[in-house]
Computed example of a mutant assay.
Amino acid sequence: MSRKPKVSFEQKLSAVKDYLEGRKTQRQLAKEYNVDHSSVRQWISNYQAMGESGLITSSKNTSYSQELKYTAVKEYLSGNASKLDICKKYKIRSTKQLSDWVLKYNGHERLKSSGSGGKPIMTKGRNTTLEERIEIVKYCLEHNRNYIETAEKYQVSYQQVRSWVIKYDKSGVDALIDRRGKRKSEDEFTEMDRLKAQNKLLEARNRWLEMENEVLKKLQEIEGGRY
């Protein structure tokens, strides 16, 4: 039996127009329609990306190509855009859908199916040394940016791993130095140490890029019907 949507198409359209024309705020609309603030943001994003059709609740799941899923997930993991921005760009109907793809990409389903024998995903971080952060980023890159697996292996949080990898991508190995307070060992990080760490991480990143190219090539072959 199909579930009746809480808010009709007409109500969503009216809400979006009220917001875009400056009559009501997102917070006011969320209260009026008894929905989360995030739902209103999603309606607005869908309307801006897909027009009125983006507000229609379909009884069938929207189909997305493997390449689109892969591209959207990688863009989110790179830290260059928010989930809502990515959904708008690729016409994905909900941030929850994107979140599901991210979890699948990072092996969440495999970990979940492992039952009680699996290790829990850490939500709290811990203090780490510079050497540990370099090793963690290296491992993550070598394992296809699997943040969950890396977090489990090194007993740090998912958020920490993702943050360190994004910082490294943007600013190199120096971005992994913790400059809060006075950490003598990290302040004494020499140019030779920096070069060694940079080479180690570059090798891991290059291996990841090679895997990326192979996966994209395979996806293009699948989408092109050659397989």
Rank of each mutant, 00 (worst) to 15 (best):
K88V: 00
K24G: 10
E67N: 06
K88Q: 10
K74M: 07
N144L: 10
N146F: 11
V173E: 09
I134K: 08
Q198C: 09
A175K: 08
K69L: 07
Y19T: 04
R179M: 05
E142W: 05
R93H: 12
V7C: 13
Y64T: 07
E21I: 10
K200L: 15
S58K: 15
K124G: 04
I166W: 00
F189R: 13
H143K: 12
N46L: 05
V73T: 03
L55A: 11
Y64W: 08
T129I: 05
E142I: 07
Q97V: 15
K104V: 03
S99Q: 11
L20N: 08
D18M: 05
T95A: 06
D18I: 03
D100P: 09
A204P: 06
R110K: 15
N144S: 13
G181D: 11
K218E: 15
Q220D: 13
Q48C: 05
K104A: 09
L111M: 06
R3T: 11
K196L: 11
A72P: 09
R126E: 10
K217A: 13
Q66F: 10
K196Y: 12
L209D: 04
T190Y: 13
R23G: 07
S82P: 00
E131Q: 01
W208I: 02
K17C: 03
A204V: 12
G225P: 10
R41W: 02
I56W: 08
G117T: 13
T150L: 09
Q155V: 05
L130I: 06
N144F: 10
S78Q: 01
V35W: 12
Y90N: 07
K170Y: 00
K182V: 03
I166F: 02
C87I: 04
R93M: 09
G107K: 07
D100R: 14
R41N: 00
D18K: 06
T71S: 00
S78M: 04
T150E: 11
P5C: 08
G225V: 13
F189Y: 15
F9G: 07
G181I: 08
R162P: 00
K217H: 14
Q48F: 09
Q48G: 09
S2P: 04
V215I: 04
I222W: 12
K200A: 15
K196M: 11
R133Q: 04
E52N: 12
K196A: 09
R110N: 09
Y168N: 01
M192L: 13
L130T: 03
E67V: 03
K170E: 01
N46G: 01
D100W: 14
Q220M: 14
V73I: 02
R162E: 00
Q155N: 07
R207I: 13
H37Q: 04
L202R: 14
C140W: 06
I177D: 04
Q198T: 13
E52D: 07
N80F: 01
A72S: 10
S157R: 06
R3G: 09
S58D: 15
K182F: 11
S2L: 03
V35R: 14
K196N: 13
L141Q: 08
S14C: 13
W43Q: 06
L68K: 07
N106Q: 10
S65Y: 02
